[in-house]
């Protein structure tokens, strides 16, 4: 066993530690790209504000704690609800007016919204970041022998996996999910069956946004609560979405986790490329299979 580590030239703690970090990043990629895919499927809009809404999720948790004394566990439920409701207001006020126009206008509008949201939070809270402590139940960690696992990080991976699978079940196995999928395929026909498609669209946007906010709450104790925490992440998530293709819910989840792991591995073996490896993968996928790994062929 030890000869393997000697051959690789790295201690196992470093390898598994980075793989864990990669898995955490992958969890965030998965939750965000899942939300993007949901929204895109229903609204035909790429939600550029997704990163800003993720940031708002983290801030919502921070506000709940510091202004109302509401802790982490309720915030995990309340923050997505609050930010999701905010998202639905955005959809009703702004996005609704763009249906039927070219998809690019949705991208431009949500880009503008992202600039506004980030600018407002930057104006109010600077860009240095605010601390948010993990709940006492999740502090500390376990020594697994080959690596040290901080409890909170383990929790993030488990929680995100549960949420991703839950969303998948919701979409694939429930009546509401069946309506959603049908409305994605043919909104006019579903409307004709007496289902309120505009309400479903609003709900879908709210759900996607809530997923982003949930990811934001999970991220708050790991990264500090920072107005710019979403803007760089969202570009990587775009690359993840291009790699996976937005055709499949499960596809975007798997792609998210895989790319997080790959990024972690790169940090171990070739750290200079760890920032760029996902973009390189995107370029390669585009050259070989332009519609993405799980995308439907045109």
């Amino acid at each position: 066993m030890s000869s393997i580590w000697a051959f690789l030239g790295i201690p196992p703690q470093a390898l598994f530690g980075q793989l864990m970090v990669g898995l955490i990043n992958g969890a965030f990629y998965a939750m965000l790209s899942l939300g993007l895919a949901l929204i895109f499927g229903m609204l035909n809009i790429i939600n550029f504000a997704h990163g800003a809404l993720y940031m708002m999720g983290a801030f919502a948790a921070y506000f709940l704690l510091n202004f109302f004394g509401i802790g982490y566990w309720p915030a995990l439920l309340l923050a997505p609800l609050i930010v999701g409701a905010f998202g639905m207001v955005i959809e009703r006020l702004f996005l609704k007016q763009l249906y039927g126009l070219d998809h690019l206008y949705g991208l431009l509008l949500t880009f503008g919204l992202a600039l506004i949201l980030e600018g407002v939070f930057r104006e109010l809270y600077g860009s240095s970041g605010l601390p948010y402590a993990p709940p006492p139940e999740l502090t500390g960690g376990y020594n697994l022998g080959f690596m040290y696992l901080p409890t909170y990080r383990g929790w993030v991976v488990v929680a995100s996996a549960i949420v991703c699978i839950g969303t998948w079940l919701l979409i694939e196995k429930t009546r509401l999910g069946a309506y959603l999928r049908a409305a994605t395929e043919n909104p006019a026909l579903v409307q004709a069956f007496g289902i309120n498609v505009p309400a479903m669209i609003t709900l879908t946007y709210g759900l996607g946004v809530a997923l982003a906010a949930f990811a934001g709450v999970l991220a708050a104790p790991i990264y500090s609560v920072n107005p710019l925490m979403g803007s760089n992440l969202i570009i990587i998530v775009f690359a993840v979405v291009v790699i996976g293709g937005m055709g499949s819910i499960l596809g975007s989840v798997i792609t998210g986790f895989m790319l997080g792991l790959l990024e972690g591995l790169t940090k171990v073996f070739y750290p200079e490329a760890s920032n760029t490896v996902i973009f390189v993968v995107m370029a390669i996928v585009l050259l070989i299979k332009p519609q993405g790994l799980f995308g439907r062929a045109n």
Binding site: F94, Q97, L98, L101, Y105, L108, L109, F111, G112, L113, A114, L115, I116, L117, E118, G119, V120, R122, E123
Partner: peptide, 20 residues
């Protein structure tokens, strides 16, 4: 400071919604 980006965001939204 951040007002540049807020203002730019508002112009984006206004352009897309009001005068494409």
């Amino acid at each position: 400071g951040a007002w540049v980006s807020i203002f730019q965001g508002i112009i984006f939204v206004a352009c897309v919604l009001l005068f494409r």
